[in-house]
Design a protein around this nucleic acid. Sequence first.
RNA 1: GCUCGGAUGGUGGAAUUGGUAGACACGUUGGACUUAAAAUCCAAUGACCAUUAACGGUCGUGCGGGUUCAAGUCCCGCUCCGAGUACCA
Length: 1010
Amino acid sequence: MAYQFKDIEAKWQKFWAENKTFKAQQPFENQETKKPFYVLDMFPYPSGAGLHVGHPLGYIASDIYARYKRHQGYNVLHPQGYDSFGLPAEQYAIQTGQHPAKTTQANIKRYREQLDRIGFSFDWDREVRTSNPKYYRWTQWIFIQLFGSYYDYDDQKAKPIDGLVKVFDKQGNDKLNVACDEDIVEFTAEDWKEFSEDKKEEILLQYRLTYLAETEVNWCPALGTVLANDEIVNGLSERGGHPVEQKKMKQWSMRISAYAERLLQGLENLDWSDSIKEAQRNWIGKSIGALIQFKIQNSKFKISAFTTRPDTIFGVSFMTLAPEHELVEKITTPEQKEAVEAYIKETAKRSERDRLADVKTISGVFTGAYAEHPLTQQPIPIWIGDYVLAGYGTGAVMAVPCGDQRDYDFAKHFNIPIPNIFKDTDISKEAFGEKDNTLITNSDFLDDLPIKKAIKVAIQALEDKGVGQAKTNYRLRDAVFSRQRYWGEPFPVYYENGLPKMIDEKHLPLKLPEVEKYLPTEDGEPPLGRAQTWAWNTKSNQVVDNNKIDHKTVFPLELNTMPGWAGSSWYMFRYMETKHRDEVFASQDALDYWQNVNLYVGGSEHATGHLLYSRFWTKFLKDRGFLNVEEPFQRMINQGMILGESPKALLIPEYLTEEDFNKISNEAVDEDGFITGLPDIAPKILKDKSTYKYKNWRVYPTSLLKYLNKNIEFKIENIPIEFVYKEGENFIFTLKKIRDIRLKYPKFNNLRIGTREHLSQFNLDNNEIPIIYLDKVILEFEVEKMSKSKYNVVNPDDVCDEYGADALRLFEMFLGPIDQAKPWNTAGLSGVVGFLKKLWKLYHQDDTFAVSDEKADKKALKVLHQTIKKVNADIEDFSFNTSVSSFMICVNELTQLKCSSREILEPLCVLVAPFAPHIAEELWEKLGHQDSVSFAEYPRHKDEYLVEDTKTYPISFNGKMRFTLDLDLSLSKEEIENIVMQDERTQKQLQGRTPKKVIVVPGKIVNIVG
RNA sequence: GCUCGGAUGGUGGAAUUGGUAGACACGUUGGACUUAAAAUCCAAUGACCAUUAACGGUCGUGCGGGUUCAAGUCCCGCUCCGAGUACCA
């Protein structure tokens, strides 16, 4: 019987589902006391476009590993679920009015169908969805725990806020080493006791791990919403092109900065790629330096500035404040007021990213105020400049133009003096940035000190004078946690006298209310502002109608929702729980047993987002005794993106004449909306006359571009991949597809194939243009990110239909190293399909199963054991492309050897099982086994079969290989040298010369020099 | 801009610790089988030069240098491409 992948795959997928083959056992169920192993994929967001071939790449890799671990006898936890809150569903809801829950549900269904077809060994009984109230109940619960905690730096630990209240009662807040806001006011124990309850609450908010604070956001007044930097293009909103401005807004923040040091230190013990660890280190951005206070002349205010180079204190020639710095308006002189305000207004239009990325435009304004040098008392002009950001450090820079390029450029631009404090250096062209082997000069008591020493001395001097102190600074900022969106977790928060109060844990979840529209309200409130029933009754502990709000027992609820990363910051622990999901986020024995994720697979684009936030929450939950691990993900593999090929077309408009148009309007329209009888004029006109167009677009190859003159209107568009086929290097788009494409994509309503006649209108020399056909267009393609909007998405279902899931799995692995970005090109698919057929044939003769019990011969054993050795090593290294290669080599060689021995074919079946599980199960069954192959012991190689006694030595002359020589491996260096020197080919190469040197590396090479 | 990656035949990629560059596969070409096609099997396939009976030679891992008996691999300086850059997930 030939290899029938369709039947085989359907059969085993059904078998696995019915038998719950991949169900992970909880500790109390695990009678064999198997060791636990947890393999997890990064949480997928179920997008409307469905799964494309890029998604399964990581899933296949992790599935291979999970299956491999099962073969090794582990109790493997390999779950899957959905990060189902998020912006795309909301955008879709705004456009179509469909409830995001509904579209999310549909998308999840589609994802599940697609996932099921690939044969993953997921334990679906443990599925989670972040948008499920039973799940987000615990996200809200964690938020409440964060609100009820503060961070103690002395113990490097989060603690219940009650403890802090006790400290305040006893000693006030003086000299406390705890995480808090920058602008706290000192108070004594007596003060504290006098404070009103509200005042106490306000103060505590400055210490809680989640707190309300004013934060800068990208506000788009026209859309009434906050935008991500991502959604802003050239200072305008991506949607609609409306202006965007910086605005302060009261928002929930997470005091992740308290954990900066632990997040940094924790990286040491993680088995992650160095690049990701480095990215996190840079993100956390630890720097050691000094905080220096500058008095402002004629004013009671002071500016604090952090610097890593206190040794350059005598090189300060100006200061720069962020335009948003709160002191700006207080210190600006009347003469400069107008200019400063105008500048601030301009700055508000620029996004943070723009401001940081743009080093070419130098801008700034003098405030008119002067600070006083803390050591020399000299006046220092205070400027504002948009290269300084309010959220970084203190939002103020002590500018040392001789040592910092940005300060240098700024000083040059505004003719500010650039005093040089580095001995024997030239700063006429650029700032001097080196640190080593340089002495300080023109710096009073720092003169002639090397930089490292000068830093210490300078800090000491500043401390002695009480104008500065050593400080460790982190670039990591507290994370904004509020979103002005509908489709996210509601905060379990209501407001009493404007102060936030938590809903009691036992009344969770606080479910997302219904709204009639998913847009912000007219007065700019988030979508939840549209909810009619969104008030909290503190008596009945229920959500009640807004008109019941009396601010006595019924209060308004928070209108923001949580961000996408809330639910995904703790989901890995939720999978550990099965039975008690209603009582706890995960029960203690489950947490104790599974510990953390042993292997995490996903994209490196999460390096500084998800991967940092979940580490933060894990550490927090551990501090508060809810978890027993410090890190969520022990080992991580990052898969690269699969890129798509986008066929590009050159579109040139063709305007219909009034006469033509009138003809169309009078014509009959057929069922599909096409005008009958006028194919030349109207490719597609819908029955609804309002969609009549005066313009058609004609499709040409992009290579025509070079023949076009500048005056011709044109555009370049991606042609949806499903309407083209590939011929060699190019994609072909035919006349036959025109109708289909118009029907499917309204965007291409008026698309036509280009003709010479049409082009002749533009006075192009038709004879020069070689590339116009009557019925087709040759399209060139570009390799770019696979996405719905680029119409270049390849669906894994298509591959499964045509070649099967095992082929898809092998092919995706065969594409290349897991961590590299690579284009999707199905050309190579036939290679793995051929492999599967050959593998099948190895177990069959004339279509009947034929495996003999004969002893295997030595050669076959060697081939098998080489493969076993290679594959085992490859799996540990996540080098699956090379394992697939070695399977191919193995099967090719066994075929040559006409091997049909069970001694070889049985271990081979287990060996391929993690990669191509369906075919392996089928062969395993045919081999006479009752149980799933999934738990068969994984083959281990035996060295005895691999022993080599000869080596084919490359013989090189001056490093160039000239010939090879088979030599016994037992030979000594001298013996090898003798044999090589006597070889006639050696003599021929040397042509009578005497070698200067002969290098012999036994087992490797021979190199003759001279 | 900053941070982190990447670059090897026509294509995807392989190459242990510095030791035969191009494994494996696709594609292409030729052949076998076939009425034919598909499928399958066999052979060749980095470029260039020489040879056409065989044997050879030069160049070659993004670019320019360096270290070494030996460099795709190590060092220095660049170019181009991708990802992240704090509200996409």
